[in-house]
Nucleic acid binder design. Structure first.
Length: 242
DNA sequence: AACCAGTTACAACCCGGGTT
DNA sequence: AACCCGGGTTGTAACTGGTT
């Protein structure tokens, strides 16, 4: 199958414009790092497979599954495939048992400093086929150390412990009680990716029930960021944003 | 600009058989 | 038995073009 030249997919363009408008009018810098798309494989899979070489991933590979960032997915995932060496995966689901036709595409690592990003054309190709976005991760990067104590006054915050019960500087709000804002994660990005200097990331997982009526809880996310970062008086944005 | 009818595109649905 | 996937059909939203 010959891939024709594709223009940027409509859904991605609309999402980017939506975020850009918010950023411009709020003097903020939010970026999307992850895109997830639930889809039915029927009539879609042949086109998806034609995009390149898909490798089957052993389900016991924990690092891959943590990359998918979904709670309790083990039970509903039957198999995982990766597109070449890109951060592009789809996992087959058994949620619609006994039909086994649902899958979720996950494209992540779109806002990175230590690694070449996924070619934008690949993302466009996928979205031109699937024509939907089910959820995204938005992130806000900064050099200041986030003020977790301040956040604790307003939300139930959990500190991530390793399997040996060692405390880390990763924190979660697993249930922010905000419509469409499923989860917030705050972590030391520099440490995670072995970067020089200081870099912290605030990340929000946002579900998109209807891509045609795009309405993201961005003001709510901004309020959470404000709790974590001392804002400058004259500007609405932290001084040393990345 | 508003209306409608016919057409197109695609998601949703059921079926059934292949593979692990 | 659990998993995987294509064929075929149907419902419907989006688009097209002609008429008032």
């Amino acid at each position: 199958m010959v891939l024709n030249l594709m223009t940027k997919s409509k859904v991605l363009k609309e999402l980017e414009n939506y975020i850009k408008d918010f950023n411009d009018s709020n003097d903020l810098k939010l970026s999307y790092d992850t895109i997830r798309i639930d889809f039915s494989k029927q009539h879609k899979l042949t086109k998806i497979k034609a995009l390149g070489n898909w490798k089957k991933i052993n389900k016991s590979n924990r690092t891959i599954f943590s990359g998918l960032r979904k709670k309790i997915i083990d039970d509903e995932v039957t198999s995982v495939y990766q597109l070449e060496n890109y951060n592009i995966f789809y996992y087959n689901s058994n949620k619609d048992k006994p039909r086994y036709r649902l899958a979720t595409m996950v494209i992540f690592g779109l806002k990175q400093y230590h690694k070449e990003p996924i070619p934008h054309q690949k993302i466009d190709e996928i979205l031109s086929i699937l024509k939907n976005i089910t959820s995204i991760d938005l992130c806000f990067d900064m050099k200041q150390k986030p003020n977790i104590d301040n956040l604790k006054e307003n939300f139930r915050v959990r500190q991530y412990l390793t399997s040996e019960k060692v405390k880390t500087d990763t924190y979660y709000i697993n249930n922010p009680n905000i419509l469409m804002l499923d989860r917030v994660c705050i972590y030391n990005k520099a440490k995670k990716n072995d970067l020089k200097g200081r870099l912290y990331r605030i990340e929000a997982t946002i579900s998109i029930p209807n891509i045609k009526a795009l309405a993201l809880p961005l003001y709510e996310f901004k309020d959470i960021i404000k709790l974590l970062v001392p804002f400058d008086n004259k500007r609405t944005r932290p001084k040393d944003t990345v």
